[in-house]
Simulated scan of single mutants.
Amino acid sequence: MLVLLSGCVGQDTNGNPTGLIWTLLGQPMSTLITFFAENQALGYGVAIILVTIIVRVIILPLGLYQAQKAAYQTEKMAYMQPILAPIQERMRNAQTQEEKLLANQEFMAAQRENGLNPFGGIGCLPILIQMPFFSALFFAAQHTPGIAGSSWMNIPLDSPSMLLTILTGVLYLIQSALTLVGVTEEQRKQMQSMVLISPLMIMFFSFSSPAGVALYWLVGGFFSIIQQLITMYVVRPRLRKQVAKEFEENPPKTPSQFGAAFGAGASASPLKDVTPPSSQNRQQANKKRNAGKQRSR
């Protein structure tokens, strides 16, 4: 099941796609591209766009479900900031390893006691279910007979296109920037690197592939922006009210509430300070050990 959901498409000795995913999904998509391009006389560029739109509409509910799970955790994290921010500040300003470990344990306890998932609560299944569709469409856009030698808006579909690569990068940069809207400052710092990394990777894949594949990425970028806008202006406001109502009925637990048992356990068996000793302390410790050995003799 894991291999199936990973969307792996094999290739034979001639470089043609093979395997279960290609047979079940890729081949029908390739046939549909040919139908739009030749039977409907729309051309292979428009055919790739139409098939990409059809596939993305089919899996859009999965993408929105995934985005909703992540947005729910984001809203809970934002609501909890008055409680989590002081602990995070102590983690940053810890002078010893013991202080840092204690603050980190308290932060994890605060998340656990208030139902926060540090991994966003997304789960792997919604992502895995989408992978075969993406993989099959990628190979269909690359290996459908007839794409080689065709063009779309004077762009050859069988060779890389710098124009499509740049447009694709801009779309995914916009989509990545939109993910930072409405998140906490701490989350924004953690996510900022992905704002550039993801578009750069998509641009690399687009320029390393024929323009027919880059066209597939381009249409996918539009859908990613649409999905993000739906999440921002439809899903999040509803989740914000839901989270406020949940915490109103079941107020968030503060460190003074869940920290009694936590603190008692910490004081009963204090953590060992593993901060490396200075060279002078190590020399004194060695002298004491040597002195003990000489007395024993």
Rank of each mutant, 00 (worst) to 15 (best):
I226V: 15
T144R: 04
K241E: 15
L128S: 03
G43Q: 03
M77C: 11
K69Y: 03
C124V: 12
G265I: 08
G123C: 02
A285M: 15
E98Y: 05
F204R: 00
R289Q: 14
A71Y: 01
I226D: 04
H143C: 05
D273G: 07
A148D: 09
I53G: 02
I166Q: 07
P28L: 01
N14T: 11
G149R: 04
F119Y: 12
A37K: 12
Y72E: 14
A110Q: 07
L24F: 07
V235H: 07
S151R: 02
S151K: 04
L64M: 13
N117Y: 08
A261I: 14
Y233W: 07
L196S: 09
G212K: 07
P270D: 09
R282Q: 13
N117L: 10
M131I: 00
A291F: 02
A141D: 00
R236L: 07
L180W: 01
L164W: 00
L180H: 03
S296C: 05
L116D: 06
T18V: 11
T231N: 14
M203H: 04
M203Q: 04
M232R: 06
Q284L: 10
L239Y: 01
A103P: 11
R297K: 15
H143Y: 14
A47Y: 00
P255L: 09
L62Q: 05
R112S: 15
R188H: 13
L167Q: 08
N39G: 02
Q95N: 12
P199F: 07
A37M: 13
S267E: 06
I58L: 10
P251A: 06
N154D: 15
I87V: 12
T96E: 10
L171I: 10
A140T: 00
K69M: 09
R90I: 13
S256G: 12
G121V: 04
L42N: 09
F222T: 06
P82D: 10
K287L: 07
I54M: 13
L125R: 02
L24S: 06
C124P: 04
F133S: 01
R92Q: 14
Q97D: 12
N290T: 10
L178R: 07
I127V: 05
S208T: 10
I58A: 15
P156Q: 11
A103I: 09
L180N: 07
L5D: 02
V57N: 00
A141C: 03
A177D: 02
I202M: 11
R289P: 00
Q175W: 11
K287C: 00
Q105W: 03
P237A: 08
E98C: 08
L20K: 01
P82F: 13
P82G: 12
V183I: 13
F204D: 01
L178F: 09
L4N: 14
I127L: 08
M29V: 00
L218F: 15
L271G: 09
G292D: 13
F35S: 09
P61L: 02
F207C: 05
R297I: 05
M29K: 00
G149W: 02
K76V: 01
G263W: 04
I87Y: 03
E185I: 10
A103F: 05
Q294E: 15
A109G: 11
W152K: 03
Y172W: 15
W22L: 05
P270S: 07
S135A: 14
P28S: 06
I197T: 08
K241D: 12
I226P: 10
E38M: 02
I54S: 11
M153H: 11
A37I: 06
V235S: 06
V46E: 06
L215H: 00
A291H: 05
V274H: 15
R282N: 09
M131L: 12
